[in-house]
Amino acid sequence: MHQSIVVSGFGGQGALFAGQLLTYAAMDIGRQVTWIPSYGPEMRGGVARCTVIISDEEIGSPIVRNPDVVIVLNNPSMEKFREELKTGGVLVVNSSMINLPAERQDIRVFNIPGNDIARGMGDVRMTNMVLMGGMLAANPVVPLAAVEQALRDHLPERRKHLVEPNIQVLRRGYREVANY
């Protein structure tokens, strides 16, 4: 097993954190992992993204040209990664904010109204977790339970009150795709 996953959105949409959470979950169940952010001279409102690699073996390159899976949270990310996604790859789309079409027949596309679901469950800032839940249903790279456990284990003490709401939102996103 060797998989590359990109999470991409506006700064503030939680793309980097969602990727980190997945990385923690995979590490905790014994996988090899790397997490690498794009760290260019980004401005407020610019695109923030990270690449996560999860593997059974030692990881060589931490970056890829054509990722296996992409979670896109906004239109600029969609524009970039609908082209770069590998043939046969999985594209998880935040349809609340993205109106661009995927324009490809050789990939699997899952549209999830992330902002709407997160807002409906109490906080739009949990959009990233809706999409992460959906990705895990479309592409079970790690079990949902491992990501839930990673939330419990790795959120700092002052954020512990956010664990339960985030788990609920993760599960909701998961069901959204499981029932697709």
């Binding site: 980190q20 992992v33 790397t34 690498i36 952010p37 760290y39 931490p62 970056i63």
Partner: peptide
């Protein structure tokens, strides 16, 4: 290089 400075690994 900057990659190693910025990336996260176990």
């Amino acid at each position: 290089d900057g990659n190693i400075g910025q990336m996260m690994e176990p």
